[in-house]
Structures are given as structure tokens and as C-alpha cells.
Design a binder for these strands. Structure first.
Lengths: 152, 152
DNA sequence: TATTGTTATACTCTATAACTATA
DNA sequence: TATAGTTATAGAGTATAACAATA
């Protein structure tokens, strides 16, 4: 067996895309793009985040992020606040409308995503969390090595 | 515990994005976009696929697909062949150059993705495949129900 | 009539790099 | 000098709907 991990990788991809595929129309119906939805979902239940933080969480690069946040600001779902401590930092926050949108949209979204888990027993969740948790730790370790190499 | 599945969902997303994040620069270096890479990877080791088939595999809608395939055709990585049986079907195939690109690019990509699995024992693979396999089956069952509802 | 793929439109995201302002 | 975010640009992906050719 040459590449023992390929099947795992394919399954991971298939599961992720399965959720994506199921929930994409659901997200579109809200009038938000995928990128916009990600920002709203990331900001939900937080006091706000800087552009840098948002970029790290969502993997959207800063130039793109400016445009995405612009459009969300036009829709009055988020606002920009300049940090008082370091005036280079811009904090993006949900507005009251944004909060409501978050609750409505994200809630319906997760209700939707729960469907495949109906019938899961506690042990099934534990097993899934354990295997994915291990993989996540390995991925984070790899990412740390990469950052270390790059940063001086 | 209200939403027992949320943690699983988050882990799945984090793992998938972890791989995406690691391999994105690797893919970009090849001069292919993510969508183009997906098409090449999907066509590799096949005799070709119709637009419809490609769309279902990659989740790219037909209108978009025309553009993506156009660009790959310009790069001489794929060709269009009209099916003889049903002339409405257009089959997209890798060219000889496309085949070589597939082998080179996809190979380096999977070498890259194997890193987090270093140190995995056989039992770890089995466990991961099993938990993801179960989830995949559930997702496919959901999708089948959805299709059933829609199709007449 | 239904299906496959193309075309057209308008918008959004993307990578990249130069730029501004703060530190 | 370094960092955070903006601006500018060109290209690519996206949803949507109308369209042509074939079945």
C-alpha cells in the first residue's frame, strides 16, 4: 500500500463538500455570499475582531477582506471601529442588525447541518471527535513548523 | 448539551481548511487556480467526463464550468470531444500535456498532504476512515432524500 | 418538451503589489 | 523599519437566466 493516507484525505474532502453542497443553497437564500457568511459567522458572539484576526480565521487575504467588509458595511451588518490602543488596528463588529442576521442565518444553517447526525449515539460523536481531533493537532503542528521556518 | 454535533462539524471544517491552507500556495505555484486544479484532478485517470459529470463531482455550476474549461483548453491541458452517442454531451478529456500536468502537480500535491499523517499507525487510519465513512454515508443518504423530493 | 452545454450580465472574490498611517 | 489596512488592477469564479442544438 503506497499511499495509505489517500483514502482518509478523500473521505475528509467528500464529507466537507457534502456539507457544503447541502448548505450552499441555504446560504445563498440569505443573500449573503459564502465569504460574507463566513465573516458574519466568525464575528458572531464575539466583541469584534481586527482585520488581521478575521483574515487568519477565514483564510481571506487582507486586500480581499477590505472589499468583503465594505459590502457588509453597505448592508449595515458590520461596522468598523478604530482601536484606541493602536490606531493601526481596525476592529470589525456586528451591528444590531448584524447580530440579528447572525442569529437567524446561522441558526437555520446549523439546524440544517445537524440532519446527517440524526441517529448518532454519544459514542459515535466521541469517536468522530477523537479521530478528527488527532488530525487537527497534526495539522496545527505542521502549520507551526511552517510559520517557524518562514518567520526569520 | 443542546447541539452535540457542532463540535464535530467545527473539527471537520478545521481539518479541511488546514489542508486547504497548507496546499493553497502549492497549487498556486503550478499556475492553476483552485477550480482549474479541481478539474484536472477530477479528470486524471479517467477517459474523460461530460460537463454534467464534472459539475456534479466538483460542485461547479455549468455556466461557470464553461469558462473554467475554456481557460484549460487555452492552456492546452484539456480538449472537448462531442459524444457520438448523444450529441448534446460534450466530453472533457485531458490532453497529453494535461496528463503530464496531472501527474506532476497532483503527485507533488499529495506528497505535500501526506505530512500530517506521518506517524499514523494502521489503527489510526482505520479509525479515521471508519468515522468519516459513517458520516459520508449519512450525508449521501441525506442527499438522496433531497434529490428524490426535487425530482418529481 | 426536456436536457446539455453556451452565452450574456452583473457582481464578487482573488492574487499581487504599491501605498498611507501609524507605531 | 515594521505593521495594519487601503487602493488599484487584472483576472477568475459566481449566480442567474435566456438561448441553441439535440433528443
Amino acid at each position: 500500500m503506497k499511499e495509505r493516507y489517500l483514502r482518509s484525505l478523500r473521505l475528509l474532502s467528500e464529507c466537507y463538500h457534502g456539507f457544503e453542497h447541502m448548505s450552499a443553497p441555504d446560504i445563498r437564500k440569505t443573500g449573503l455570499t459564502k465569504a460574507q457568511f463566513d465573516i458574519i459567522a466568525t464575528l458572531g458572539n464575539t466583541p469584534g475582531m481586527t482585520f488581521k484576526g478575521l483574515g487568519q480565521k477565514t483564510l481571506i487575504t487582507k486586500g480581499t477582506l477590505t472589499g468583503v467588509v465594505d459590502r457588509l458595511e453597505t448592508k449595515q451588518l458590520v461596522r468598523r471601529v478604530t482601536s484606541l490602543e493602536d490606531r493601526r488596528n481596525v476592529i470589525v463588529q456586528l451591528t444590531a442588525t448584524g447580530e440579528r442576521t447572525f442569529e437567524r442565518v446561522f441558526d437555520s444553517h446549523i439546524q440544517f447541518c445537524k440532519q446527517p447526525f440524526s441517529g448518532y449515539a454519544e459514542a459515535d460523536f466521541v469517536a468522530l471527535e477523537e479521530t478528527l481531533g488527532i488530525l487537527k493537532n497534526r495539522l496545527e503542528a505542521m502549520a507551526a513548523i511552517k510559520t517557524e521556518k518562514k518567520g526569520k
